[in-house]
Design a protein around this nucleic acid. Structure first.
Length: 480
RNA sequence: UCCCCUUUAGCUCAGUUGGUUAGAGCGGCUGACUGUUAAUCAGUAGGUCCUUGGUUCGAGUCCAAGAAGGGGAGCCA
């Protein structure tokens, strides 16, 4: 093997130097006609074709060029005589770095079902679809930090292990070092968490919001971007037990400023993807169109993936209050014809998926921000409006995904928040520090949470959230 | 957690009213092929029909329970 330094395929394809001697290393996608090796190294969705003259190579070596094998080739970059690619490498040296037994390697040069690939999560990243998803995921992570950095926000790491049970966003995973078969007991016979690692009950976080509020009331504009855990027994295409959430929190923002930021943020991400992930998005766009062709007319997307991204990047979101939404829904055809499973009758009802979908997908046909919800269906920390019936909450609803962002202006008035905490029976000893923020130099502030994987669903067009995170954690599944 | 659907070769699927030896395409293997693009052509191997129990002379097919996967709902991001 020569000593030539390895070049990434993306570099070769973006600035090809015809006649140059190159070394590429990657994984074999197919070996056609005993002559053409399609190699992918993950740097781009595109393969580089290596051309071998089989008379110059040992037959035993060529037999090891199987789909999935890792190879290194050295050769001259030339213009391709074939139609499918601009350039290719005429191979002088060929090495198999890692064999892949063709009889056992599960990925074949053909379309596999997403369900099958989920069971092969350690290998699915070697497919075009998942390679594209991983690369876009990285681009979106970067764009999140870029957006907030450009706006002067500070990233804050909030704790993953939390001692507060009051976040109120769902069931939590317990964190303990106690022996589950023989835990220490109190005199009353209950598990004695005073003897646990932290000297109290602890859980994995369900939200960094409460902690990040402390930073907002000092640094001004901050955000968290971290793992989040929900022990809900949710079995849907848009829920994970472990997911990543982006939670900006801003001092001196009211609910309108908050909605402005949320809209600007997702538009920025959509634009960033369109500008920086073109090849991967083109592939997923085509994939989506092919998928749609398999579906009945009424289940097809009206817009392609790229059109949906363009649409979000370039169109104003609709903003209506909960009350206005109820009026629209009450007078809607499906409500009058009793097509909704849950009919809208009175103000105050929580909106169901079917209602959100109607507003987003049928009535407005664009992203919708609903705000000013009834206070009794929302969390304790949301700021009470003057009408005494609603709170300054807002949800951003997206077609096909539903709620992608949930946020609110926070209650900054100590007395009002204290009364609300008491009213809802939340143990104050867990929240003393959160209440103290309102005692000392309190300020109006707002924030929201964006489910990163839900956003990834929108950007990639993947309909199951388990396909936009490398190793999904869901009820009854923590493989890998 | 609830409702619905699915489970047959490595993968994607077909399998008639319950009937004798369970099929196809792709993939694998063997061979051919020096401009292929999920290469192509010829040949070939490959099955706990998800599991358990039941009905029946006879079950891939019917019934019951369970498991796994998918879709929808709730909860939410």
């Amino acid at each position: 093997m020569g000593t030539l330094k390895r070049t990434k395929i993306s570099d070769i394809l973006s600035q090809p130097v015809i006649g140059e001697q190159v070394n590429i290393k990657g994984w074999v996608r197919t070996f056609r006609s005993n002559r053409f090796i399609a190699i992918n190294d993950g740097s781009t969705i595109n393969n580089l074709q290596a051309v071998v003259d089989f008379e110059n190579f040992d037959e035993a070596l060529l037999r090891r060029i199987n789909t999935g094998a890792c190879v290194s080739v050295i050769g001259k970059l030339v213009e391709s005589q074939g139609k499918g690619q601009q350039v290719e490498v005429v191979v002088d040296e060929l090495d198999v770095i890692g064999d892949a037994d063709a009889e056992k390697y599960p990925l074949q040069p053909k379309k596999h079902s997403l369900e099958f690939l989920r069971e092969k999560a350690h290998l699915r990243v070697r497919t075009s679809t998942f390679g594209a998803i991983y690369r876009i995921r990285h681009a979106m992570i970067f764009a999140v930090h870029k957006f907030f950095t450009e706006k002067g926000f500070y990233n804050v790491h909030t704790p993953i292990i939390t001692g507060s049970d009051a976040e109120g966003a769902g069931e939590m995973f317990r964190v303990t070092t106690l022996d589950p078969t023989n835990p220490p007991k109190t005199e009353e016979g209950e598990v004695n968490y005073k003897e646990d690692f932290f000297g109290k009950e602890t859980n994995l976080t369900v939200s960094g919001q409460l902690e990040v509020e402390t930073a907002a009331l000092a640094l001004g504009e901050v955000y968290t971007f971290g793992p989040t855990f929900r022990a809900e027994n949710s079995n849907t295409s848009r829920h994970l037990a472990e997911f990543w959430m982006i939670e900006p929190e801003m001092a001196f923002y009211n609910i309108n400023d908050n909605m402005d930021l949320a809209e600007e943020f997702v538009k920025y991400l959509a634009k960033y993807a369109l500008e920086n992930c073109k090849e991967d998005l083109d592939f997923l766009n085509k994939r989506g169109i092919d998928e749609d062709k398999q579906k009945p007319q009424n289940e097809r997307n009206e817009l392609s993936l790229l059109e949906r991204l363009e649409f979000v990047a370039n169109n104003e979101f609709v903003r209506i209050t909960y009350t206005e939404a109820i009026d629209i829904l009450k007078n809607s055809k499906p409500n009058k014809k009793k097509k909704f499973q849950y009919l809208i009758e009175d103000w105050g009802a929580d909106l169901q998926s079917e209602h959100e979908r109607f507003l987003v997908e049928k009535h407005f046909k664009k992203p919708v921000i609903l705000y000013n919800y009834p206070k009794n269906i929302k969390a304790f920390y949301m700021r009470a409006n003057d009408d005494d019936k609603t709170v300054a909450a807002m949800d951003v609803l997206f077609p096909g995904i539903g709620e992608i962002i949930g946020g609110s202006q926070r209650e900054e008035r100590y007395d009002v928040l204290k009364a609300r905490v008491d009213e809802m029976g939340i143990p104050e000893e867990d929240l003393w520090w959160y209440l103290e923020l309102r005692k000392y130099g309190s300020a109006p502030h707002s924030g929201f949470g964006l489910g990163f994987e839900r956003w990834m669903q929108f950007v990639t067009g993947m309909t199951n959230i388990r396909d936009v995170i490398p190793f999904p954690r869901t009820p009854d599944n923590a493989e890998f």
